[in-house]
Design a binder for these strands. Structure first.
Lengths: 208, 208
DNA sequence: GCTGTTCTGTAACATTTGTAACCGAGCGTG
DNA sequence: CACGCTCGGTTACAAATGTTACAGAACAGC
């Protein structure tokens, strides 16, 4: 069975999967590679087959903030809007690990909406999920202090990579949360003293 | 010409507008009335004909934050996701002024996606707009200080009601931005000293 | 080993935002 | 007018977050 069928057979109907297989361009990205950058025109919509993609918003000056992650079987709904409207991307999509995506040329998006019920459901559900993730980001920013934000961030990573041992630096956390390294270190130390995490060089273990 | 046709003839095709007129339930809401509340099931999708709707996110404890406004010719995409998935609303929609909406029972959403190209475009464009407004909200929260947030808030209101004279209290601003009245008063006073605004009781005039 | 670099810990301080308390101005009502 | 109420101004203080600076530990490469 193809990788596409494997990742999407539960949500998309067989006839559509065949069409996808016929037109999709498979692409592999290494960890850290930028898939779509802010300001770029988006001419294809990515279906994630394997790996994870980090969606980031950047400030005009400097500073950026993590919005959410995409995992297997998901798509970047931002890019749909861009494809259809032929607009520039408002966000950056970056491979979090080695990632395989099926790029769908944008003329099919609309065509399939008319043709396949499972495609309509998939697109609407994707939008719904992404909206909810944006709401989660807003909740964190508006209602949580740094300690809570850091802890949510760490737990989200644990969920994503399916391991409580995270390989990252304090600076990376600070960047993702648009804060500063010192602040992050200070709070991480506090969390370690409360036995919620364990700090090592380039590594954080989540104990709770 | 019907109110629906008047508000939507530029974006939706005539046959679809006829269908909408046949099935829509027209509803009027007074300023301040809650159209959809958090946790409610959403069984119809609102098309805004006249007025403005305020979309708000609420914290589990206390505190809320304004996400964006809907104006004439727009729809709440959150509710689409809810209708299709038969889920509870994640946000509160409240009439900002006297507001007229056409409520579309949810079975038509999907049906029209298959049938009308203009409906597909309308829905996708709505999602795109709402996503961008959410991004705007995130930008403000993540990258701006209170002064900037207050100024953006005021200018957004000016744009919405099409007048530089705003009738609101400091407390209302504080609530919309999830801050406190004292903080807002302090910053408003500073803005007044800089001749950016003029403060009166229950009224703020934007000078820039 | 030695050396330069990266990562982390920590202190001291500045800035921003939030909180509590109080007072007076304006406004409506009887 | 007297009363109660809402709204806004202000002060003093507390808490959270950001900034600057420096030092040592861990590591990589030679």
């Amino acid at each position: 069975m193809s990788e596409i069928a494997n990742a999407y057979q539960n949500v998309l109907e067989p006839a559509l999967i065949e069409e996808i297989e016929a037109v999709a361009i498979m692409k592999t990205f290494q960890a850290g590679e930028i898939i779509i950058d802010i300001g770029q025109y988006v001419r294809a919509m990515p279906l994630l087959i394997e790996g994870a993609i980090k969606i980031v918003r950047e400030d005009i000056q400097e500073g950026e903030i993590l919005l959410y992650y995409l995992a297997k079987g998901e798509t970047c709904t931002m890019s749909i809007a861009c494809c259809v409207g032929n607009k520039k991307s408002e966000i950056r999509a970056q491979a979090e690990m080695k990632t395989l995506v099926a790029m769908i040329p944008n003329q099919y998006l609309n065509e399939w909406l008319a043709k396949y019920n499972s495609w309509r459901e998939f697109i609407l559900n994707s939008y719904s999920s992404r909206m909810n993730e944006m709401l989660g980001a807003i909740d964190n920013l508006a209602f949580s202090n740094m300690e809570t934000r850091i802890m949510s961030y760490l737990k989200e990573k644990v969920r994503l990579i399916e391991s409580p041992i995270l390989t990252l630096t304090h600076q990376e956390i600070a960047s993702d949360l648009n804060s500063s390294r010192v602040v992050v270190s200070r709070i991480l130390k506090k969390l370690e003293n409360e036995n919620q995490i364990l700090l090592l060089r380039n590594e954080i273990r989540i104990l709770v």
